[in-house]
Every structure is written in C-alpha cells, then in structure tokens.
C-alpha cells in the first residue's frame, strides 16, 4: 500500500510544491502589506482567500479524478492486475488524501502562527491567544478533524458510486446515471444514519458557552463508523466485482 502511495505522489509533488510556493509568496506579500498598513489590504486578503479556495477546489477535484483514472481509463488495468486487494488500493488512495489534508492543515497552521507572531510585533493590541478559553483550541482541533472525516466520507461516497458504475451497474445501459443517483441516495442514507446516531448522544454538536464550545467524542465515533462502513463496501466492490 505504501508503494502505491509513493507512485501517486511521484506524479504530484511538483504540483504541491508549486501550490505551496504560490501560497508562501502571497502570504509574505499580504503580511508585508499589513505591516505597512496598505490601503488595498482587504483586496489583497480577499485575493489570498480566493486563491486558497480555488486551490482547495482543484485539490478536491484531483482527489476524485485519482479514482476516476483508475476505474475509467486504461491505467486502471495496470493497478488492478497488481496483487493488491481492493481494500489496499482504496486504502492507499484514502491514506494519501488524509496525509495531504493533514499536511495542508499543518502548513496552514504554521503560516497562521508565523504571520500572527510577525504582526504581533508591530501591532501588539492584536494579541488574543492568551484570552482564549483553555478548551477552545482543543475543540477547534477536534472540529477540524471532524471536517476532515466529513471530507473523507464524501470522497468515499463518490468512490463508492464510481465503483458501483464499474461493477454492479457495469452491465446496465444507464449504469453511470444510476450510480450518480445512487450517490445521492448514499448521501441521504449516510446523513440520516449520522443524525439518527447523533440523537442518541448526550449532547448536541456544539455546547456553546460564550466563545467556548465542546464537541462530544461520540461525534468522532459516528464519523469513523460511517467511514468504515463506506470503506468496507467500496473496498469489497473493488476487490471482487470490478469490470474494467
């Protein structure tokens, strides 16, 4: 599985390096404009957010295309003749997505922290970290992890519908359309199960108390359960039912 991940990355590290370089340059530019109290600050900040947003969309599309290429193009014939099970193939792809997302999160965190420290030297009144409630940072981290789990669930649901199009629905005339409809259905089912399970937990997602809030650990269990369920079904289809 690690070897598969290596080859997925060999094709992409230059793109990531390019994206990182653009972000660093834009970040340096924006911080220097903040320091110099530039008139067009909001315009530049807006541009930075737009660039990061577009990059995020491009990355998400790339995450989807990775499985599309493996299932709907000739390259998949190489991947699926290797003695790797469908679970390992899927696991390799998902592990890469998790690592990339975490890597981006870590970079974003480092950027933010460095920017904050630099700006604080110039504008000390912006100091806010010490004013945050003790639990706040921990729960922010928890919330980010839940967002990552939500993203992985979404990607897995898309992979599942692609796997369906190339397995159970492959001999049906409107198989691709059916698998898309199935994607909508899966989303509905996953959403319903998540809220149904959520109703058994002792608290809502956010227990607000000023700016403090708590994310119950059961939310993690529900998310992991959903990921495991969709992963097992998709892995099974890739392992036993695929028609390339």
């Amino acid at each position: 599985m690690l070897k598969l991940m290596k080859y997925e990355w060999m094709n992409r590290w230059k793109i990531f390096l390019g994206g990182l370089t653009v972000c660093i340059l834009l970040n340096i530019d924006i911080v220097s404009r903040i320091m110099n109290k530039n008139d067009y600050l909001s315009l530049y900040t807006g541009t930075l957010f737009l660039v990061v947003f577009v990059m995020g969309i491009v990355l998400a599309v790339d995450h989807i295309i990775r499985m599309y290429k493996s299932l709907f193009t000739e390259e998949g014939q190489l991947l699926f003749t290797t003695p790797l099970s469908g679970y390992k193939i899927l696991g390799g792809k998902i592990a890469n997505i998790i690592l990339e997302s975490l890597g981006i999160g870590v970079f974003a965190g480092i950027f933010w922290f460095v920017d904050y420290k630099v700006i604080l030297n110039k504008v000390p009144e912006l100091e806010m970290l010490s004013k945050l409630p003790p639990n706040f940072v921990l729960n922010i981290m928890k919330m980010l992890m839940l967002m990552l789990f939500g993203y992985i669930t979404l990607i897995l649901m898309i992979y599942l519908s692609m796997a369906l199009a190339k397995s159970i629905f492959s001999a049906i005339k409107y198989g691709k359309l059916l698998s898309f409809l199935f994607f909508i259905l899966i989303s509905k089912v996953v959403g319903t199960i998540t809220s149904w399970l959520g109703s058994f937990t002792d608290s809502s997602y956010l227990l607000a108390n000023g700016i403090d809030f708590t994310i119950p650990n059961t939310s993690f269990l529900i998310s992991i359960g959903m990921i495991a369920m969709v992963f097992i079904v998709t892995g099974y289809l890739l392992d036993r039912k695929i028609n390339l």
């Binding site: 094709n11 000739e74 390259e75 014939q77 190489l78 003695p83 790797l84």
Partner: peptide, 21 residues
C-alpha cells in the same frame, strides 16, 4: 481469480496501461 492468482499471472493488454507521465 483474486489476489492469489494475480501474483502468478502476468498480463499484457492491447491498450496503453502504463501511466503517460
């Protein structure tokens, strides 16, 4: 047919299954 058989079967398809990059 499964992972066990894939360990001992070497397949060459007609199409270009090698990544172009």
């Amino acid at each position: 047919i499964g992972t066990k058989t894939k360990e001992i079967v070497s397949f060459m398809p007609t199409s270009n299954y090698l990544p172009k990059w």
